[in-house]
Amino acid sequence: MDITLPALRRSAQEMRIDIIKMLHAAGSGHPGGSLSLIDLLTVIMTRYVKRTPDNVSDPDRNRFILSKGHGVPALYAVLAKLGVIGHDELLSLRTIDSRLQGHPHNASLPAVEASTGSLGQGLSIAQGMAMTAKLDSKEYKVYCVIGDGETQEGQIWEVLLSAPMHKLDNLIVVLDYNKGQIDGSTNDIVNLEPLAEKLISFNWHVQEIDGHDFEAIDQALQNTQNYGGKPHFIIAHTKKGKGVSFMEHPTEWHGKAPNDEQAAAAIKELEATLN
């Protein structure tokens, strides 16, 4: 039976604590985009990808590609929560012998499915996996989270044109739309809007949700399951740094780790939500 959404919400808060601890231990990394992503990832991986330690290399498994590879602390936290990697291993993030590379590397850790971190590329890999499923008449689905800054990349728009041509209704793209990128606000740098209209005109099945509302996330993903003929695009409005009040800023916490005091304050704030 599926874990209830309130239980998943609590689980995501615990994983936020893991993310803070990992980044603090590593001394570098990307808290803002990991915290904006974790609610989405929790629902996707638990209820839809249904990743377990036993199905990591099952050829018929659902796939998940984190195209915005810098958010990988969130993915490692989820993989640990699901028992695919050890919880103790999380603190090895970004160290020399670790499987937990600074950005996903499938040859080090096959559970991440592909190597990403150069923005724009993971979505094409997801498209290819969805094409294999169609070619082989397999039922598995391919989920892919992309970033909003990443959506400025030309290669993303190649897939936006291409996937509907291949009728990849087994491809579910989720945009972590946190409105921030390194040099400023996404809207000020290269504005994606009006995004939903663009995607609809490109022949995608488009939904727009609050990416921190677990019911909305779950419902949107549920809506993709039996909607045939078009690839799916969920525009999930999120907040960069979500859950740690002083990190909730579009640019301040894109790519820096918390120091001792900041980590302690963040963990204290998150732990208070667990009671």
């Binding site: 050829p59 796939r63 499938n106 499915e113 592909a114 724009g120 590329q121 993971g122 979505l123 094409s124 890999i125 997801a126 498209q127 290819g128 996996m129 969805a130 094409m131 294999t132 499923a133 070619l135 082989d136 030309g154 290669q155 190649e158 897939v159 044109l161 291409s162």
Partner: peptide
């Protein structure tokens, strides 16, 4: 089509799925 980036990536995805 004339999408070499996507061709490379999609092929990688197919390779990773067998």
């Amino acid at each position: 089509g004339i999408q070499e980036h996507n061709m490379i990536g999609a092929a990688a995805g197919m390779a990773l799925s067998g």
